[in-house]
Simulated assay, not measured.
Amino acid sequence: MQTVDFRYFALHPGERLLDLGCGEGRHAIAAYILGDVHAVGVDLSHGDLVTARSRYQEFAEPDNTCKRLDLTAASALALPFADATFDKVICSEVLEHIPDYRAALMEIRRVLKPQGMLCVSVPRRWPERLCWALRKQYHLVPGGHLRIFRRGMLRSEIEHRGFVGYHSHGAHALHAPYWWLRCLFWKTVETNWLVRQYHRLLVWDMLQQPLFTRTLEKWLNPVMGKSVVMYFRKEAAA
């Protein structure tokens, strides 16, 4: 399930892309598939990186020297890369987990080339607030969400660090009710009939891509998309 829309984040041959907080590799692998790029996925979870490596094998093109994917464990607060290493950085559903997210933004700025592009996504404020209200454990579990962002405030914070925003959109509107249901039926989530049926609907939608649900989500994304996705370009140094 991709959050980044590569129509607004075009990949060019020979570019280096960092997927910061890559998890199980959805965006790093997508970038590898879509373009002749060197994609690098970074995450703190060894288990997620193992899963990402396994998923990548299905798409690996070892004889294609124009593309490459690497995965490594590292902290967003101390990235093991030189200044101005990457042409593009993706930071999707990560900042809400990091205590010092401002330091992570500065690391992103450091490793991104001048005129490089950044895509950031975070949970939309009102669907996230509803999850917090329905079940406090939702954000108190280890690795849970530490904060709820205001889109305008986060955009301003990023722009004040030398970026210019050029596009934004919502994503995954059909997933918002699923998380509300999970919170509502927290104690029986694994066996609850309604939760399981809605999950089946989401899996069917992702695999089959039917016109009705794709169109419905497109209409709903600006209002209740579970994620807010923002795109920036790093200003050249004065």
Rank of each mutant, 00 (worst) to 15 (best):
L105A: 11
M106I: 14
E107L: 06
R109Y: 10
R110N: 08
L112G: 05
Q115S: 14
M117P: 08
M117R: 14
W126Q: 15
P127K: 04
E128S: 09
L130F: 04
A133I: 00
R135D: 10
K136Y: 05
Q137V: 12
G143Q: 03
H145K: 05
L146P: 05
R147V: 07
F149Y: 08
R150W: 13
R150E: 12
M153L: 11
S156G: 09
E159L: 08
R161V: 10
F163G: 03
G165C: 11
G165T: 11
G170F: 10
A171H: 13
A173K: 10
H175T: 00
H175A: 01
A176C: 08
Y178C: 07
W179H: 02
W180L: 05
W180N: 00
L181I: 01
R182H: 11
R182A: 01
R182Q: 06
C183D: 00
L184D: 01
L184W: 07
F185A: 06
F185K: 01
F185D: 04
F185W: 05
W186P: 03
K187S: 12
T188P: 02
T188N: 06
N192Q: 04
N192I: 01
L194V: 04
L194Q: 04
V195L: 02
R196W: 07
Q197I: 03
V203G: 11
V203P: 05
D205E: 12
D205G: 09
